[in-house]
């Protein structure tokens, strides 16, 4: 959940610019913030109100936000923000809820944003050149504005308001089968932590460079005993 303080922010109720500073983790069963706060390494500004230009995309070990002009990645769980480049607003199904939601892909090292493009098409746009390619076509998605995927169960999830090929009636939530290619490369350490000598009571800090599929967990140890676990 987006936040600029310790409570959630609701951008559609904010006029002007919304500054996102934190993510609040929600309990998967209740939807209530569970106390875990991820502070972003730098803030991200997005338009508020019903801007219809903001896109939020779930990815592998990251969340990607498109504010209508630029694309930003937030690595999880570190909260490290990086600017992925400029991108205009793609043609897509309109959302009635401030932003639309989709999936961030990494294909051959390039970032893509996958979203519902029309009532019959789910597509991806490449960052930053805007190249569009079709992922799947359907008979009728109605006004489905948002979808996401769950790799662990091999599903895609969707919501739409009116009558589609899935169901007649208002406000439908559903899922169906999806197939994804997910990272499988194990972690490697191209740069080992360097030895360090400090006088007692002085602070010491170790760093390590890693390659591998996200998300990556870190567990530092002191004398073979776990000390703390977080990326450095």
């Amino acid at each position: 959940m987006l936040a600029n303080g310790t409570t959630p922010v609701t951008p559609k109720d904010v006029s002007g610019t919304v500054v996102i500073k934190r993510f609040l983790e929600l309990d998967s069963a209740t939807g209530v913030p569970n106390g875990t706060v991820i502070t972003l390494s730098s803030t991200i500004s997005v338009p508020g109100n019903n801007s219809s230009t903001v896109g939020i995309f779930g990815g592998w070990g990251r969340v990607v936000i498109h504010n209508g002009t630029r694309v930003y990645q937030i690595a999880l769980p570190s909260g490290t923000v990086s600017d992925l480049g400029a991108l205009g607003v793609p043609s897509r199904t309109s959302s009635e809820s401030w932003a639309y939601w989709g999936v961030a892909e990494t294909i051959g090292g390039a970032n893509h944003l996958a979203y519902v493009r029309s009532s019959t098409t789910i597509a991806r746009t490449k960052v930053s050149d805007g190249t569009v390619s079709t992922i799947a076509t359907f008979a009728n998605l109605n006004d489905m504005a948002s979808f996401t995927v769950g790799p662990s169960l091999g599903r895609w999830y969707f919501q739409h308001e009116g009558t589609s090929q899935f169901r007649s009636g208002d406000e439908t939530l559903g899922f169906a089968d999806a197939t994804m290619v997910v990272p499988t490369n194990p972690p490697t350490i191209p740069s080992e932590p360097a030895a360090l000598t400090v006088i007692t009571t002085e602070a010491a800090s170790f760093s390590v460079a890693v390659n591998g599929a996200q998300p990556i967990a870190y567990q530092w140890q002191r004398g073979g005993v776990t000390s703390w676990a977080r990326p450095v």
Partner: peptide, 22 residues
Amino acid sequence: EAITAELFKISSLKTNNSLIAD
């Protein structure tokens, strides 16, 4: 070092097994 081998791509989306809710 940049992560160069990372790949996360949707291969296909199907319409079967849809669970509906209201």
